[in-house]
């Protein structure tokens, strides 16, 4: 999967290390994989494996110590209007209403738009995530799940090529999480032009249900442990999929791999489906 020329995002031998008291700490070590245009890729790993560091590089907030991170063939030099980001929390500005938050994002991603148009799009996307009635509320008056809906509405409304999501449903309760996953998949699948998504999670079911590919990282330093193609066709129906025996089997294999990663072994003993 590495380095195909037409990939939207390419990571080549990406290494990130920090100066620490005890010396140099390597968070990511020699990461290489690509994400094709319109592909939905999850990066999965236990906490502290550097998956959020990986996303920070793609967001342009963190410079690689070695190797390269390319978008459309050009190295990432900083945050850019081609990427929309959803964090686990604090994506929204607490002093702006839901509507204002979305509009603020649109205004900065699409500077050519007129004010009225910005608010029209904001309202349209708030409706898509089912929050038309709450658009005048401040984030402090919204539940965690609703806040993430607003953040997703903002990221989608910005109409960027790439969507970067850093455990967006990590702080949401189980029931809401399922609803949000389905909503995200539905919105993503119905866009005129599918966005390229990099989605960070530690939830195996979430990764499988959402993605075309799952990239599994080892623990410190983070290395690519497995790059797994998810074979299920879209559109995916949760209840149908989760009950099927292929899914159960696939999930069992992925889980075995995930928990087998104690030694950081990387030889290929995995039979691809």
């Amino acid at each position: 999967m590495t380095g195909s020329r037409k990939d939207k995002i390419i990571l080549q031998n990406l290494t990130v290390s920090y100066e620490e008291k005890g010396g140099l700490f390597t968070a990511l070590d020699d990461i290489s994989f690509g994400v094709a245009d319109g592909e939905f890729v999850s990066v999965i790993g236990s906490s502290g494996c550097g998956k959020s560091t990986l996303l920070s590089v793609l967001e342009g907030l963190l410079r690689p110590s070695g190797g390269s991170a390319l978008i459309d063939g050009a190295p990432i030099s900083g945050p850019g209007p081609d990427r929309g980001v959803v964090f686990q929390s604090y994506s929204l500005f607490p002093w702006m209403t839901a509507r204002k938050n979305v509009a603020f994002g649109i205004k900065h991603a699409r500077r050519e738009l007129k004010r009225a148009e910005v608010y029209r799009i904001a309202d349209e996307y708030l409706e898509k995530v089912g929050l038309s009635d709450s658009r005048g509320r401040y984030p402090s008056r919204l539940s965690g799940g609703m806040q993430q809906r607003v953040a997703i509405a903002r990221a989608l409304a910005m109409d960027t090529d790439i969507l970067l999501m850093d455990e967006p449903f990590g702080a949401v309760d189980a029931k809401n999480r399922v609803q949000l996953q389905e909503m995200l998949l539905d919105l993503w699948g119905h866009e005129a032009r599918r966005k390229t998504v990099v989605f960070i999670t530690h939830d195996i079911d979430e990764a499988i249900f959402l993605s075309d590919r799952v990239v599994m990282l080892t623990e410190s330093p983070g290395r690519v442990y497995r790059d797994i193609h998810v074979p299920f066709p879209r559109p995916r129906d949760r209840s149908g999929l989760l009950g099927s025996s292929v899914y159960v089997e696939f999930r069992r294999d992925v889980t075995a791999l995930f928990f087998g990663d104690k030694t950081g072994e990387t030889e290929d003993d995995w039979v691809k489906i």
């Binding site: 967001e59 342009g60 907030l61 945050p79 850019g80 209007p81 990427r83 980001v85 964090f87 929390s89 604090y90 994506s91 929204l92 500005f93 603020f104 994002g105 900065h108 991603a109 910005m158 970067l164």
Partner: peptide, 10 residues
């Protein structure tokens, strides 16, 4: 994180 949220919005 608030500063980061703003930075990624460019």
């Amino acid at each position: 994180r608030i500063v980061d949220s703003a930075r990624v919005l460019n």
